[in-house]
Amino acid sequence: MIEMSELKCAGRGTLASGDRVGTGCLACSVPAKQKNLFAWVGTVTATLALTLALCAMFTPPAHAQNLTYIQDPKWQAPPEASAKVNPLANKPQLAAGGKKIFLRDCAQCHRPDGTGLPPAANLTLPLVQQQSDGALFWKITQGNTGKKMPSFSGAPDAQRWQVVLFLRTLERSARAGQ
């Protein structure tokens, strides 16, 4: 119960001092404008709360590089694919384009620095970096759909070679960071 000295009631006049009003009555006696205000505040609060929840949901986690990455033994490039040479190898400036593609299409799982969110591969590890350009190109092209690595065969050949160029810079960055 709430004791109120004076309360304007929409369409009901004014409550006298000392009148005792139940909360149910209070709710029904709030003016229409005030109700609109409550609705606005409620909606804005709910929207903000939802926004924060969504932001939390979509903000990439800052933890855990994949230090325990184990390569799928069944996912090996055939010898002829491994032997392919990167046609852009003598144009290192094109790695910048590869970086852009990597950040756009790969960083979600492999992280921007290539260290990988488990179970995605840590691309800075020697296990990965010791593979030939051709083998990396083959893996980007084929994907490993059973292990959640999509095929990127729909991207132009040159762009996939650009990504391979960029992957080579990850090893150098990792060494510099050590």
Binding site: A46, L50, Q108, F152
Partner: peptide
């Protein structure tokens, strides 16, 4: 309006972490 705000929130918050790959 609320749906628009929510959609915008998803767009703004998700913008840095989502991408389009290869689509025909």
């Amino acid at each position: 309006f609320a749906f628009f705000v929510i959609f915008l929130a998803i767009a703004l918050c998700a913008g840095s972490s989502i991408a389009v790959a290869q689509e025909s």
